[in-house]
Design a binder for these strands. Structure first.
Length: 836
DNA sequence: GAAATAGCGATGTAGACAGCATGTC
DNA sequence: CTACATCGCTATTTC
């Protein structure tokens, strides 16, 4: 089918496609059009990755808009939301407006209402539906990307329920579900009342094979010799082989890139280091230069060991990729790989699920992964391996893609062929009938008025994929009753016979997008705090008066390690004597200010949110158990709730891992350097940001819950939230709230005697300039953001900075210690709020 | 005698959505 | 109930 023949699209679109070189639809796309995607028909497309699914979605959305409708594109990851948005923006010249809505990147509701295509994550859509976003009623077309993820036990039910709700709100809704090739696409089609297009077709051929001994055996029977020297590893040999292969006749690209999938972060890093030796030898001097620049950018993202290791690899043309990387690291690596500067990436599954990074050769090195519940190494799902292999073959660059599994012996080779190459992907199974999923979704369904009775809930659930699949009819009803009991017992719903209504707290919980169990934990903790306030305060005061004890037991350890605690950098007495009331750091011995210690403390609140099911906790390594048991007793008065007995193994263990996670947050909010934190907790920079982001969200929710049940805790909660948000001690909260001022600059300003925004408006400009390391543009921006009338630095002499020895000292030290993504340019410091 | 290497036990294990208010594309 | 690669260490061999 010719694109020129497509009917129902906005004028100019077929011509645009032709100009992009798309004159003929791919067979699956043509099938989709025949099935009526451009005429508003619902469709399930179960096709391989990179076979043009996105165009099917675009045709559906553009034709829907042309008919006067509005389209929603649901993605599983935030990173994909921005990728898709960028892709769809090429239609703007034909009058199509594109908007995005995700947790961290949002546009106002009114603005979205005016957009034609909206890209959002499934959770965000769920939340918008819960909160009755007005434009939801106007939708006429919904695309669900990667719909096979309904199989995911954690996030699948959200997609499933959300699609159900959207269809219920708008009975005529066109649903276009894009799926990888799965075992049972007909189930999905039946559930969505949609036509099914099923295809194995791909635009670039994919050869799948297994490497064993000195050759790869492919699924088409062909073989390719790849010799592995004695004592050498298979992976470097395969990477070198394809890098040296320029026999594709297409152009002089000097051979192809590889993606290597491994099963742990550590393996990804170790493998990348080894592969760097392979790639380094094959770089041109031009490439070396460009890679060196990228390596520097990587170092500028974060001053941590992970960052440094990555930069070293990248300089040599290799990289690793996993969730411990900061978002900026990831995109730098992905971009450089697409630009063919980085020749190989060793990655965990992040890359298979994330943004598009095609490669000439994909090597699935590890096909088993440790699984604690399983109790050992578990083979990956066929679907997952297929997703990885599907990354092989760069359109327009490679004659075909190659996906290679590794085997150490002939038996394994045969097993891999059976298990992954000849095998079809598993069927998708709904995970809806599990208590954690239903807890959230039943409450939301009641709260947003989708159902008012138990019967109504069951009726709604009857429309889900789960219902079309189950062969155990009573199960959903049983779990529903358990969940309703739970919700009632915790005061989120009230029941009157068959009727179910959400309480005021229940509405809040649903709106805040909290797992009800998290909300219950937070509410219990806050209530406990207000019941035990006096007693605990006395305990805390007692300790504070008793001795000049160190605030934290490990301070000595830190000192041994040559680490200077943030608190030690704070001048003992404020630089100006008047005391701004902004709250000083808790100094240990005799205090000259009123001892109005806040309660609950930040650590107590961090611990509270860390023990909710919405927080992914750090887990205890060997030796941690002792360390954190001790810490637990020491900080016990701060924890909100009774510490479980040490003999309650599981509960106690969870309590400790929550404490460990809380401590990470406390370190962050005590201005401990990023590299210090990564080292101490064995995490990557991306993990810190992830934890901080989640904590920020949960504390925000806690703040609102506190307002609802017991306002006495709202202030401490808000303060704790702002401390994680900015990564600062309490005295810096005001300064760090200024745009362009993060934890580092706030601390420097504070040390220069500028403690508040008001100070900043009055302060001597040369002092500000010196505190900001002589960066005039930055200083101007900061002053302007602080609301100063005359931010210009033109009249300030550079030499003034030299008059301030303290600040000069700071500059040198900061150069060494900066770990916060500060680049040496005027726009250097991102506000700590905008991760990701 | 220093350095390479083999052997051994301890160790640790993928991923990532969401509120709200604001600022930004 | 289940694994396995890596790391840091020591014992042993090698030049």
């Amino acid at each position: 089918m010719k694109t020129a023949d497509l009917a129902g699209l906005p004028p100019g679109v077929p011509e645009h496609l032709r100009d992009e070189g798309i004159e003929e639809l791919y067979p699956p796309q043509a099938e989709a059009v025949e099935a009526g995607v451009t005429a508003g028909e619902s469709l399930v497309a179960s096709v391989p990755t990179a076979s043009g699914k996105t165009l099917v979605a675009e045709l559906a959305m553009l034709s829907a808009v042309e008919r006067g409708g509005k389209a929603l594109y649901i993605v599983p990851l935030r990173a994909l939301a921005s990728e898709k948005k960028a892709e769809f923006e090429r239609w703007e010249e034909y009058g199509i407006d594109v908007g995005v809505s995700t947790g961290n990147y949002d546009s106002s509701g009114e603005w979205l209402a005016s957009q034609d295509i909206i890209v959002a994550t499934s959770e965000k859509v769920d939340s918008l539906v819960r909160n009755n976003a007005p434009w939801v009623d106007d939708l006429s077309c919904v695309v669900a990307d990667e719909v096979h993820l309904v199989d995911d036990s954690h996030r699948g039910p959200t997609l499933e329920v959300t699609l159900g709700k959207l269809r219920k709100i708008n009975p005529g809704l066109q649903v276009v579900a894009l799926s990888a090739t799965v075992g049972n696409p007909e189930d999905i089609a039946e559930w969505l009342d949609a036509e099914l297009v099923e295809s194995e077709w791909r635009p670039i051929d994919l050869k799948m094979g297994v490497h064993y001994g000195n050759a790869i055996t492919f699924d088409d029977g062909s073989q390719r010799e790849v010799r592995v020297g004695k004592g050498d590893r298979q992976t470097p040999a395969l990477v070198a082989d394809i890098l040296d292969d320029d026999g594709d006749g297409e152009d002089d690209d000097g051979g192809g890139s590889s993606l290597v999938f491994v099963n742990s972060r550590r393996n990804a890093e170790a493998s990348a280091k080894r592969l760097a030796d392979v790639t380094e030898k094959r770089l041109t001097s031009e490439e070396r230069g460009e890679l060196a620049e990228i390596a520097q950018e990587i170092r500028d993202v974060s001053d941590t060991e992970t960052s440094d290791t990555l930069a070293n690899c990248v300089a040599k043309g290799a990289a690793f990729h996993h969730a411990g990387l900061a978002a900026d690291h990831r995109s730098l690596v992905e971009d450089a790989f697409r630009e063919r500067l980085i020749k190989v990436i060793s990655a965990t599954p992040t890359l298979a699920a994330g943004v598009n990074t095609p490669s000439r050769r994909v090597i699935v090195r590890d096909w088993q992964r440790y699984d604690g519940d399983f109790g050992g190494m578990k083979p990956l799902d066929v679907l997952e391996v297929h997703q990885m292999m599907g990354r092989a073959g760069r359109p327009g660059l490679d004659p075909y893609g190659e996906a290679v599994l590794l085997a150490k012996n002939a038996d394994t080779r045969d097993e891999l062929f059976e298990r992954y190459i000849w095998a079809d992907a598993e069927p998708v199974r709904s995970k809806l009938a599990a208590e954690p999923a239903l807890r959230t979704h039943l409450l939301a369904t009641v709260a947003s008025g989708f159902a008012h009775t138990r019967e109504g809930l069951l009726e709604f659930l009857d429309q889900t994929l789960y219902a079309t699949q189950t062969d155990e009819p009573g199960r959903l009803e049983r779990v529903t009753d358990n969940v309703l009991d739970y919700l009632e017992a915790n005061g989120f719903v009230e029941r009157d016979g068959d009727g179910v209504t959400a309480t005021s707290v229940g509405h809040t919980v649903s709106r805040l997008y909290l797992d009800p169990m998290s909300a219950a934990e937070i509410i219990d903790g806050l209530r406990w705090a207000s019941d035990h306030r006096e007693e605990k305060l006395r305990e805390l005061e007692g300790e504070a008066d008793g001795s000049a004890r160190e605030n934290r037991a490990d301070a000595e350890v830190d000192a041994d390690a040559g680490f200077q605690r943030a608190s030690e950098m704070v001048p003992e007495e404020g630089t100006d004597a008047d005391g701004d009331g902004g709250g000083d750091a808790e100094s240990d011995d005799d205090v000259e200010f009123e001892t109005d210690r806040t309660y609950p403390t930040a650590l107590g609140l961090f611990h509270l949110v860390c023990r909710t099911p919405d927080m992914y906790q750090l887990y205890l390594k060997s030796g941690d158990r002792e360390e954190y048991t001790e810490l637990c007793y020491e900080r016990e008065p701060e924890l909100l709730g009774n510490t479980p007995s040490e003999y309650e193994d599981v509960r106690f263990e969870e309590w400790l891992s929550a404490l460990k996670t809380a401590r990470l947050l406390e370190d962050w909010a005590d201005e401990v350097d990023e590299d210090r934190i990564t080292e101490r907790y064995g995490v990557g920079p991306g993990d810190i940001r992830g934890k901080v982001e989640t904590a920020e969200w949960l504390l925000g929710a806690a703040e609102q819950l506190a307002g609802e049940i017991d306002a006495s805790a709202t202030v401490p909660v808000r303060e704790a939230k702002m401390r994680v948000q900015y990564g600062v001690r309490d005295e810096l909260i005001d300064l760090a709230g200024i745009r362009g001022v993060g934890r580092k600059r706030a601390r420097r300003l504070f040390e220069a005697g500028i403690q508040t925004r008001a100070d900043l408006r009055e302060a001597d400009k040369s002092v500000v300039l010196a505190a900001l390391r002589g960066r005039r543009k930055t200083a101007e921006n900061v002053l302007e953001a602080a609301g100063r009338k005359d931010p210009s630095m033109d009249d300030v002499r550079e030499a003034d900075a030299e008059d301030l020895p303290e600040a000069t000292f700071e500059t040198a030290k900061d150069r060494r210690e900066d770990g916060d993504g500060e680049a040496d340019d005027p726009e250097e410091q991102a506000s700590l709020g905008d991760f990701g």
